[in-house]
Design a protein around this nucleic acid. Sequence first.
DNA 1: GCGACAG
DNA 2: ATCTTGTCGC
Length: 232
Amino acid sequence: MTMTTTVPLPAGWPTTEERARAVQDELRLRVVLDEPGPPPGTGHVTGVDVAYDDERDLVVAAAVVLDAASLHVVAEATAAGRVPFPYVPGLLAFREIPAVLAALDALPVPPGLVVCDGYGVAHPRRFGLASHLGVLTGLPTIGVAKNPFTFTYEEPGTRRGAASPLLAGVEEVGRALRTRDAVKPVFVSVGHRTSLDTACAHTLALTPEYRLPETTRRADALCRRALKEATA
DNA sequence: GCGACAG
DNA sequence: ATCTTGTCGC
């Protein structure tokens, strides 16, 4: 059974793009990049995702906890509220995080590593959704995105497991990682308290069958379902 | 100035 | 993100 809670807007949540960028420039200093992160296949791995109904100004987030070894669902929670920020490239976190925080708070078990649908340090100011969520919660986080955003990369080898650097100019901000033979890669970046190697290892452990991590797939399905039930 | 741009 | 049917393939 899934419990849906109501989203409280964190105190001081920015309303303007200018303020939001200032918040990123301040919080980015707290990102921890010198920890390896939890080893793949142990403990919990949690996927978070968000669905919208802009017509009704409604946002629903889902958090799904998996046992990292079996990939079985251990717990799940959802949270619904008003959309707190418009979609602006580079400021996605301000639109998604309040609902995600509420869903994580509603979980009955520790989340372990949190897998986000989007980017971590692969970001214009090196502070994407996954890093922001990590700093706010203290949890280890990674970002697994479906698109290369503004970054560049060389096509990785055709086999699952092949990878190539995701580049912001000459700086490596993440990795294009093939999770399925001959299928478009995903774009992995560190969020908080995790290394890039660990992030990629987790991503491969979570993709035994599909291109996207099992965590993301489960969270995506849950928030869409909860949005329909909230709309109905 | 123009275009591109995680979800 | 979201709007949306059928269809090709394992």
